[in-house]
């Protein structure tokens, strides 16, 4: 039960060298060598990420209980979330006592997930925040899914239902009004700060002048740059809809 969108010449080719196989696999992204290098040279110690992920999940459950209510029907589903441009994967287990997000070194580390979601990190983030339509990502092959389609659909619909905004949800912890939280999660703060610096590296990779790219791709990169800028500053997105309305083509360059 494995499915991956075929690659198409001229598209944003994230996994040009990925062989077609019926096993979940990770291709090496060809678009963003610098991006990958940025992480590969300074990988975050995975074990140190766990407290941050636990914190993130606690926060999500508090701020977006409606999302988790929609996941109730899934009970024991598990997902492998594979950002193809990062050297590690996330696992999401919904079973009791509480949903848990973890990080694993590679896709094979998770035994028989209900489903696998695979795509560039920023596509995954935009899906999580509901700023990109899952079907559109699917149609355009930016997102690959494998396994239990009902579980995938439930997760997609649940996540899309809430107004998740990673920057606002996570970085707001460190805003001036969140002093106590900030002190309580001091250890995590350092991680976030570092993650921010890593994301800055990612951003630099994306916005560096790219010769010979077609207009559509340039527009796409500009869009990703905006996303990263938003992520970096934790800027609320009250005007996000307005921005999209002004540039209708940007969600699908």
């Amino acid at each position: 039960m494995v499915y991956r969108w075929p690659e198409v010449a001229g598209g944003v080719n994230h996994r040009a060298d990925a062989p077609v196989t019926n096993e979940p696999n990770r291709g090496t992204p060809s678009l963003s060598p610098v991006l990958l290098a940025g992480f590969a040279l300074r990988p975050l110690p995975l074990v140190l990420l766990q407290p941050a992920l636990d914190l993130a999940m606690t926060l999500m459950r508090r701020r977006h209980s409606d999302v988790f209510e929609r996941l109730d029907t899934l009970e024991n589903a598990s997902f492998l979330i594979d950002p193809v441009d990062l050297p590690f994967c996330f696992t999401l287990r919904l079973g009791p006592p509480a949903p848990r997000l973890s990080v694993v070194g590679n896709a094979d580390d998770m035994e028989s997930p209900s489903a696998v979601l695979r795509g560039p990190l920023l596509v995954l983030i935009r899906l999580l925040e509901g700023r990109m339509d899952g079907d559109a990502a699917f149609f355009s092959r930016d997102l690959a899914v494998e396994g239990d389609m009902e579980a995938v659909l439930t997760l997609r619909n649940a996540v899309d239902s809430g107004g998740i905004d990673l920057a606002e949800d996570l970085l707001s912890l460190f805003g001036p009004l969140n002093g106590p939280a900030r002190r309580a999660f001091g250890a995590a703060e350092a991680l976030f700060a570092r993650a921010e610096r890593d994301l800055e590296t990612v951003r630099a990779a994306f916005v560096a002048p790219v010769d010979g790219r077609c207009d559509a791709q340039t527009a796409r990169l500009r869009d990703l740059e905006d996303d990263l800028a938003d992520l970096r500053t934790g800027m609320p997105r009250a005007n996000a809809a307005g921005k999209r309305a002004a540039r209708p083509g940007t969600a699908r360059p």
Binding site: R126, L127, G130, R131, M132, D133, G134, D135, A136, R156, N157, D160, A241, R244, A245, P248, A251
Partner: peptide, 14 residues
């Protein structure tokens, strides 16, 4: 109705 918020926002605005 089964599509995401991004679809709704974009298609409705258009």
């Amino acid at each position: 109705r089964q599509r995401g918020r991004a679809y709704i926002a974009e298609v409705v605005a258009a």
